[in-house]
């Protein structure tokens, strides 16, 4: 068939609002207040971002603890292609970041010039947004920690 095929731009969108519960809610409340919270397991280790249940035993976890906004990169990948709805309008590193005092890692972006500036184990610090609403993006990104 020689006729030209039609095509049309389409968008599908779901405006979900998710209720957070007491644990994720407290974590997001902390982010809004500019602090990072984790949750303690029975053996004293800390899960961050916090989960409502022990990742190994499934037991309910209840003791939220305040952590710092610094940590180190456990692993990372370079996101070189800029796409819409990403945290940056430029290439960045997507990293698993273990917050100091925590035993697990959180996924977040690290703002550096290029992959050569990234390394496993490097120290990073959260860059907070000035206007925060209780969302993971209240941390704009992580950036290399400047040691005095």
């Amino acid at each position: 068939m020689a006729d030209e095929l039609l095509s049309a731009p389409m968008t599908i969108e779901y405006p979900f609002t998710r209720t957070t519960g007491p644990v994720i809610g407290a974590f997001l409340t902390g982010l809004r207040e500019g602090v990072v919270l984790g949750i303690k397991r029975a053996d004293g280790s800390v899960v961050c971002p916090p989960t409502e249940y022990d990742p190994e035993t499934g037991d309910a976890l209840t003791e939220m603890v305040e952590l710092t906004d610094t940590g180190h990169v456990m692993s990372w990948t370079w996101s070189g292609e800029v796409r819409e709805h990403q945290p940056f309008d430029r290439p960045y590193a997507l990293a698993l970041i273990q917050i100091d005092g925590a035993d697990t890692a959180m996924l977040h972006g690290v703002d550096v010039d290029g992959p050569e500036a990234m390394s496993t184990g490097m120290r990073v610090k959260a860059r907070w947004r000035s206007e925060r609403e209780g969302h993971i993006r209240d941390i704009a990104c992580f950036e290399p920690e400047v040691t005095p």
Partner: peptide
């Protein structure tokens, strides 16, 4: 904080 907005959006081209 009791809720969080998590919109999901997909932009694509439809060829029928």
């Amino acid at each position: 904080v009791q809720s969080v907005r998590t919109p999901i959006r997909l932009d694509y081209t439809y060829v029928p």
